Simulated assay, not measured.
Amino acid sequence: MTKVKVINRSDNALPTYQTPHAAGMDLRAQLEAPVALAPLERAIIPTGLFIELPEGYEAQVRPRSGLAAKQGLTVLNSPGTIDADYRGEIGVILVNLSKETVTISQGDRIAQMVVAPYTRISWEDTQALTETERGAGGFGSTGRG
């Protein structure tokens, strides 16, 4: 298991995996007062968490499916990427896509975070790409089912 340094300046416990095979950990709001998001309004919600990821790792901030389905709240820049050299507070950009005002309170689970390794690339300039069965078929090219 990879160790990640963390500073917790919130009133919440550190994020944990809720099941043995969960990929993400829930992030909680660190708020002095509730935040009311009107329909189509967005806000950066602080978490009080600061992390130091190892080189070669990133953290992705993703929506919580239950929050999106039940309340219409989602992460606007999904997935948000936290780079290994970022040392600021983790903030979550939430947007309200429902028709009702939604209130976020201290300690609410607002997003999930997945930490994963990544690969960096270098470009190889070429004049042709290897042919495949799919070819240039893009959006919707493989059918509906």
Rank of each mutant, 00 (worst) to 15 (best):
A13F: 15
L14H: 03
L14K: 09
L14V: 09
P15W: 04
P15K: 02
T16I: 15
Q18E: 15
Q18P: 08
T19H: 03
T19P: 10
T19Y: 02
P20T: 15
P20W: 05
P20Q: 07
P20D: 11
P20Y: 06
P20K: 14
A22I: 04
A22Q: 08
A23Q: 10
A23G: 09
A23Y: 12
A23R: 07
A23W: 10
G24R: 11
M25S: 02
L27R: 00
R28A: 07
R28K: 13
R28W: 07
R28N: 05
R28D: 12
R28T: 02
R28Q: 03
A29F: 12
A29H: 14
Q30P: 01
L31I: 06
L31M: 10
E32P: 01
E32N: 14
E32L: 11
E32S: 09
E32M: 08
A33G: 11
A33R: 12
P34N: 00
P34T: 08
V35E: 04
V35R: 00
A36T: 15
A36N: 14
L37V: 10
A38F: 14
A38C: 13
A38W: 14
A38E: 15
P39G: 05
P39L: 02
L40Q: 12
L40F: 10
L40T: 15
L40V: 15
E41T: 12
E41D: 07
E41R: 14
R42N: 10
R42M: 06
A43F: 10
I44Y: 04
I44Q: 15
I44R: 04
I44C: 07
I45Y: 09
I45D: 03
I45A: 12
I45T: 09
I45S: 10
I45G: 06
P46S: 10
P46Q: 06
P46I: 08
T47M: 14
T47H: 13
T47S: 12
G48L: 09
L49F: 00
L49W: 00
F50T: 02
F50S: 00
F50M: 01
I51L: 10
I51H: 00
I51P: 01
L53N: 04
L53Q: 08
L53I: 05
P54W: 06
P54F: 04
G56M: 07
Y57M: 08
Y57C: 05
Y57Q: 03
Y57W: 11
E58G: 03
A59L: 03
A59N: 02
A59W: 01
A59M: 02
A59Q: 00
Q60H: 13
Q60D: 12
Q60W: 13
Q60N: 10
V61M: 05
V61W: 01
V61D: 05
R62K: 03
P63A: 01
P63R: 00
S65P: 11
S65H: 11
